[in-house]
Design a binder for these strands. Structure first.
Lengths: 206, 206, 206, 206
DNA sequence: TATGAATGAGGATTCATTCAT
DNA sequence: AATGAATGAATCCTCATTCAT
């Protein structure tokens, strides 16, 4: 019944080790950045005696990074998706996305910081980053068709919003402000984005 | 007027060498990113036979990076400042800043790419990045007082706008689109920012 | 008749496992050479999930290599011996040896390639290589006594013939030529060796 | 007047270091074989404090090996070429080649052993090995046209003779026999090759 | 009997920096 | 003022082997 004949199943201990290493890697990347997140640093952080251990469980640095991204993606998705889906309408969903993303900083600061750093500096871009941009774009496009967003270049705005969101998140993660402040920050940013995409008022400047 | 009495004056040749190295460093950083911009790569690009030359003229990598940032700052400022100062009013100046910054991609692509990469990845942030944020903030604050910007958290918006601008610039620098397209992109982004900060229309949703 | 009283008998499964590993090792060595034939590569080729399996059944790399050599020796011997023994006379037997050895390339290419690589690069030489040289020498010596070979330094010629044969075999194994071409090659080489060892004709250059 | 604008000139010390490293590398390869000739072993043998030194002077292992082959080639050529050119006629030249090659063992044993090992195990083959085979083949072909060699497959015989010669040389280099014995060995081998390629006597077995 | 996990030494290579000249 | 040479730590990765289960 195995759906993948080429890959042997993972034992419990292996999965545990991999998870342990991935967790350490995420924390180290969040702490010192991808560029300085060497195997030895990660191994030390994980309490492993040698870097060989990591190479044993992961095919290479790319593989480890991919595992980190996958893990982070799972965590973020678990938090954000229900909140986004609970929102009704394009505008409310945009707001929910932004606010839940900012709120994540208080819950999983390391994951958030690491992901942004990886997306910027590792070769992970194509897959992960474009997926998000595509999501944004599609959301804007359908929202424009529904008349709840004004006309604008969806690609550019997607890019700007995503990077702006990242910047806020990274900055916040560096300070780790109070939960209230975080909530306020999310709302502030959501406001900004909603206003920036709102259709012109009837009888407006047209 | 020298603020550092312990620093001897630089001779002409030394300055020339430094300039040559800085130029090469900027190009290499723009090309392969800060992380991979090693001394040997920079030396090779500069036509120098050894990395010792670089260490001789700069106290270390930090010093070289600082020199690069200073040089880039000069270049960018020379291009952008007159255009911004030619604009009248807070909104027009915001627009001028954004548009001239995007336009820079067509004029000094290497400088633009390198600076953004340095700001993100080197430890240069404090100095250069904060200066820009402060500038934005101050502009927003006075604009709000003049009533041409709606009330918002100036720090957050400064951060978001700056990073969004960077993202657009980096993306554009990767493709090097036609000048016309670059102009359109600048206008699109300026529109976005102006709308996001515009005061509510009279009799609006208030 | 066992010459080693300290070695317990092998069970069926153990023998099967060993055989499986040896077969894989031979194929890998033939494919990538002894130097790159790591345990992990062999394990992967054998469909084993870890190299521990190999270390469990063999005392070390030397032991595995010895087992490979023994296995190959059996296979080669089974093919060549009847053909050599079917030949009558020293010259015909020399010819039979050479021709059947070259012919082996078409039948057991992996074994042939692996053996030569092992003999050259592993420390296996003493045992296996010397046995062959001794065989050659003895054959030449008795042939000389019978007057069918001219006088020459048997050791040197044995060495030269063996290595020449190996070179031809390795080259042929790389191309895997048609059976006919292989037969021609064997005959060509046998001719060469027979001529090189033939006694001077009566009334010759003497 | 430099004939190579892309490559800066080598200083005296650099050339000296390179030569020192190459010499050490040749000795180590001759001693333990290419497979085990690691940078650290070579560095230790050369009295260098780190392997970084080698990487500093050579672009990589390939580069170092290439330099070794070039050096060996120079040495061998200087010894063998005059001896071969002094010989008159195809047969005498074949003899001179074989004898001077064997004699080399007494003069430059390390170079001879290292070269054979490199040719067999490094990726140097294409260039160096084929050159020698081509040389042999061409010599045989023109000799056949001149009627001093019998008809035979030049490629195969070239291969066999070259590998036989190598085997003799390697074996001799391992024992380092007396000069007299070396001379005898060369003559024996030359005899063998000459006989193997000699035309059938008039009124022979035809 | 088998095996997955772990180990630690060793592989080549790159790096920023120092130093004598 | 300049430079070529040297350094040694750090990079990721592979290796054969061991061990508890």
């Amino acid at each position: 019944m195995s759906y993948c004949l080429l890959m042997r199943a993972r034992t419990f201990t292996e999965s545990a080790r991999r998870a342990q290493i991935v967790t350490s890697a995420i924390e180290v990347i969040a702490d010192v950045g991808y560029a300085k997140a060497s195997f030895s640093r990660i191994a030390k952080h994980a309490g492993l005696s040698s870097t060989g251990m990591i190479s044993y469980h992961f095919a290479g640095k790319e593989d480890l990074v991919a595992a980190c991204v996958a893990e982070i993606d799972t965590v973020l998705r678990a938090y954000m998706e229900p909140r986004i889906e609970a929102a009704v309408g394009h505008v409310a969903q945009l707001r929910a996305y932004v606010e839940s993303n900012v709120a994540m900083v208080g819950v999983h600061p390391a994951e958030v910081k690491a992901l942004i750093d990886l997306v910027r500096n590792a070769g992970t871009q194509s897959a992960s980053v474009n997926a998000r941009l595509d999501l944004f774009e599609e959301h804007f496009r359908t929202g424009q068709e529904a008349g709840v967003f004004r006309p604008f270049d969806t690609r550019t705005v997607a890019l700007v919003f995503a990077s702006g969101l990242d910047a806020v998140v990274v900055t916040a993660a560096a300070d780790l402000p109070e939960p209230d402040e975080l909530t306020r920050l999310g709302r502030e940013l959501a406001d900004l984005y909603v206003r920036a995409t709102a259709p012109d008022p009837l009888g407006g400047q047209a």
